[in-house]
């Protein structure tokens, strides 16, 4: 017996929410990858920075998380994420790239950066906990979501996260295709030496893209905090799946990252509901299913899902 209500509640709504979260997080990581070529391990920490910026903003302003208030804090989350991302590019990656560090070295440096950001966040939280008596860990932003009568909180989150994702995509599309900066940026991505020869300050372009990366990921942190308990490891614990989304998305354009996010989100929820449960496997194996799907996909379609799409377009 097919129950529409159950299907909507157990499959569609969670799938949309997860997909949007992973899509938002993937946009930033894809941009990191196509500009500075760093598979950054510190990417998840930008989301945690966004989440904690929101938390502190709301607590200093309202003393707690009120319904709808996270949207007031969203610009703050974006700013904080952008600031940290910018600093990590200017302070760590740019000097290292200048010294000719290879991709693997940059990657391990980003691993160090993860510990640095994590440690600083955790120190701040411990201080805030003792000084103000706030419980700075394991809270949830779900109470900060707007309340729409007649809709459950996860339904509202499905709608708002979709709206935010679309707005961000539209803004990025406009920025990349309709502004002079967009032209410069695409040129720097496509062919950095040529862009440099034409007098474009490629490093400045990269610095600005890191601002965008941080801002988008900071916002992703707020939505992560609605589903997962917020700790300093909010983004770090989800990093393997963000990487999966980015790689499956094809590493070529930010829209690929969004597709990857959607593939990860839906394959998790569908695989969980229609593979694990019917086969009567114990629920403990929940994580194994999305992983198995990704493994199978990669083995059957070695170029990734985006590769399939690209191949179809070519024919």
């Amino acid at each position: 017996m097919f129950n529409m209500y159950d299907f909507l509640n157990n499959v569609v709504i969670p799938a949309i929410v997860y997909s949007n979260i992973y899509a938002l997080a993937s946009i930033g990581l894809t941009m990191t990858y196509i500009t500075t070529k760093i598979p950054s391990f510190a990417h998840g920490d930008l989301a945690a920075v966004g989440a904690y910026a929101t938390f502190y903003f709301l607590y200093f302003l309202f003393g707690g998380i009120k319904p709808g208030s996270v949207y007031l804090a969203m610009p703050i989350a974006a700013l904080a994420g952008a600031a940290v991302a910018y600093l990590s590019y200017i302070g760590v990656f740019k000097p290292m790239i200048r010294r000719g560090a290879s991709v693997t070295v940059l990657m391990i440096a980003s691993f160090g950066l993860h510990f640095l950001i994590f440690g600083i966040l955790a120190i701040l939280d411990s201080i805030a906990q003792t000084v103000y008596g706030w419980s700075t860990r394991n809270y949830s932003f779900s109470t900060g979501e707007v309340q729409i009568p007649g809709l459950t909180q996860s339904e509202v989150t499905a709608i708002t996260s979709s709206v935010v994702l679309l707005l961000i995509l539209a803004a990025l599309y406009y920025l990349l295709n309709r502004t002079k900066f967009g032209v410069v940026m695409r040129a720097s991505i496509d062919n950095a030496p040529l862009a440099r020869a034409l007098g474009i300050d490629v490093e400045r372009v990269y610095a600005i893209s890191w601002l965008i990366i941080g801002a988008v990921t900071g916002i992703a942190g707020i939505y992560m905090g609605m589903i997962f308990p917020v700790t300093e490891e909010l983004g770090w614990l989800r990093l393997p799946l963000i990487f999966v989304a980015v790689i499956v998305g094809g590493l070529s354009s930010i829209y690929g990252g969004v597709i990857g996010g959607y593939i990860v989100g839906w394959s998790m929820v569908l695989g969980f509901n229609y593979i694990l449960n019917p086969l009567n496997l114990p629920p403990e194996y929940q994580l194994a299913i999305p992983f198995a799907i990704v493994i199978a996909t990669l083995l059957l379609a070695p170029q990734g899902i985006a590769g399939l799409i690209a191949a179809r377009r070519r024919t």
Partner: peptide
């Protein structure tokens, strides 16, 4: 500062500094 987390931050910084001055 909380010593445990401070140790993590310094550890991360140490990795970055070593690689910054010796990328090889």
């Amino acid at each position: 500062a909380d010593p445990t987390y401070l140790a993590y931050a310094i550890f991360g910084l140490a990795i970055i500094l070593v690689l910054m001055y010796r990328p090889q």
